[in-house]
Design a protein around this nucleic acid. Structure first.
Lengths: 353, 353
DNA sequence: TTGAAAGCGTTACCAT
DNA sequence: ATGGTAACGCTTTCAA
């Protein structure tokens, strides 16, 4: 079997308790340098690895950080979770990803997770079902587990017992809208999912600021499924521009929706960006390779992950204080899908078509 | 604290050993129905959940299945892992994903994982560094952990102590090549990564079968990074068609590479599919929305996941026998990016440009 | 500064 | 058919 404390104790001619103290760098007692050295040498020699179960039984937790996430087929959510995974590794615990494959049994996933008593849990993209998110935070906290919510919209309320960092959807939409407004557009559509709340507000804010009255909204109801929203976007673009031919710019909730919208525009004979400018969201690797490279909003995934790791790291180092809230901003990435309205084809010669 | 066996024993007026026997449905001893009922009632009432550490210490394992995967930014690998995750849930264990964020410390990840003594491990996309994969399988097996390798190319050798299911790259490439050959193409290029071995063989097989002698290869060396390969594909397409203008079809190693190649073709004034037909690989959700929807190979991710779960499930049910090997085939998904060579623009009127 | 021993919640063995 | 108890490997209290 594997090496135990007793094995070490025997070979080093000390008691198991001494070995435990040395290897755990117990500061409450002073141990002679000589003993320390001997114990450490033997432990090294035998390649001792503490039995996690035995230790867990005593200490009541595992040196484990779990990332709770509902990936579905959403590549951005998945990417955020994976980046967080990498960032958390620096905290010196085992990191595991738990994908809530079935949202209806969210609580069961949490209960199962809780039985392994992780030190900390990070919840990624807690956007769907807020009430549930709060309950989960409560449950984890009261089980003595540190919790960080990484990306959540609307932002986590102050009273929820968890640290949080999120990306500002409202600002992103404001940025996108401002971009096309400054290009000269006045009739601007918003396509996406109803649950992307902040986007609508950001869009409103920008338009209001420039004294634009017209609003063109196509917001899908129902489950926030990436591929369904994309299909919706295709129809929506078609519908929107058939009904309101004066529209010259479209803001979409994600890049996939944006290409789908572009496809919808092609269906009715409209070109991007000549006839309609298009803005995506996410900066998916695909964007730059599209025949008309997509102007989009880059989500700062790495910074998000770093912030999440920092928040949890601080708690693990026994930092106290009130729950922290951080907000990150998306960045505008201008490419070829946006141009002044009704631009000549010369103006878009950057696009090699 | 939480409910223990002793709590139940006390309330049910039996010994803890009896409770343990009842709750574990121990068949080696007969227990009176009456006692069983009483014990179960109390356990139910107190919402008893076994302490995983205590049980783990005795039994030596956790009711846990781990998925070992190196996601990087590869959406298909990630998708396979996630689908497998869902499929494994039916086995009634906790399922966790472990992302090997740093390949150079692969073995450390495995060692850490091993300390939690999972019942089974599934390794997804074991394509990079075969020697390492074998070692990991060996290590896990000798620790008494069941192993299934889900998607591995070249296929896992017979002697490696693990069950395996994979997707046939050779056949996929054969399928893609045959498709364009039957459309009338005779000068066909292959673009991708050197490590996608089987693709080259499948391409060769199809061309040979039709008596085509010319080979046009652009295979990238170095790390098999999706985004780097895409960048390479753009250059490669440009290079290939500048040097060999007779080429009329290009097979790419993934969809992202295919759009990148398409971009490269546009750069030098070539149209898809009029001038060049293009085939991708993966059937990414993006494909159908591209201005020219991409013909591609669909990877049967769900079947892959189901097979993986079946393989592991059988082992967990103590099935013996030799290591199993299963192979699944990609399916051709024809869209708009392939057409007869040098087709008139009328023939591609399906593409609204 | 170090050692002995109790106890965490289970399971498994030996009694009865 | 059921009960008592040792043992898993560790941490921690108490004693020396």
């Amino acid at each position: 079997m594997s090496v135990t404390l007793r094995n070490i104790a025997k070979r080093a001619h000390v008691a198991t308790s001494t070995v435990s103290r040395v290897l755990n760098a117990d500061t409450s007692v002073r141990i002679s340098e000589q003993t320390k050295r001997r114990v450490r040498a033997v432990a090294e020699e035998l390649a001792y690895k503490p039995n996690l179960f035995a230790r867990g039984m005593r200490v009541g937790q595992l040196p484990l950080i779990a990332i709770l996430v509902m990936c579905r087929d959403d590549t951005m959510t998945t990417r955020k979770a994976l980046r967080l995974n990498s960032a958390l590794l620096s905290l010196g615990r085992q990191v595991v990803l738990i994908d809530i494959a079935d949202p209806t049994t969210y609580h069961e996933f949490v209960d199962t997770l809780l039985r392994t008593r992780p030190e900390a849990v990070a919840i990624v993209h807690a956007i769907a079902g807020h009430e549930q998110t709060f309950q989960v935070c409560e449950k984890l906290m009261s089980a003595g587990v540190h919790v960080a919510v990484v990306d959540c919209w609307p932002p986590l309320p102050e009273h929820v017992p968890a640290d949080a960092v999120t990306i500002d959807r409202e600002y992103g939409a404001y940025l996108a809208a401002t971009h096309v407004i400054e290009l000269g557009h006045r009739h601007i559509g918003l396509v996406g999912h109803e649950a992307s709340y902040g986007r609508r507000e950001g869009y409103e804010r920008a338009l209001s600021k420039y004294g634009i009255e017209e609003r063109y909204l196509e917001l899908m109801r129902g489950p926030d499924d990436v591929e369904m929203t994309a299909e919706f976007a295709r129809e929506a673009a078609r519908r929107l521009l058939s009904k309101h031919p004066q529209i010259t710019a479209l803001l979409c909730n994600c890049d996939l929706s944006a290409v789908a919208a572009l496809r919808g525009l092609h269906d009715i004979g409209l070109q991007v960006p000549c006839d309609v400018s298009l803005v995506g969201w996410d900066d998916d690797p695909w964007c730059q390779y599209l025949p008309t490279a997509l102007t989009t909003l880059t989500q700062p995934c790495d910074e998000l992950a770093a912030a999440g790791a920092r928040l949890l790291g601080d708690r693990l180092n026994a930092a106290g204080g009130p729950w922290r809230r951080e907000v990150l901003r998306p960045r505008l990435q201008v490419r070829e899908s946006t141009a002044p309205p009704r631009c000549s084809s010369i103006a878009v010669s950057v696009s090699p078509r």
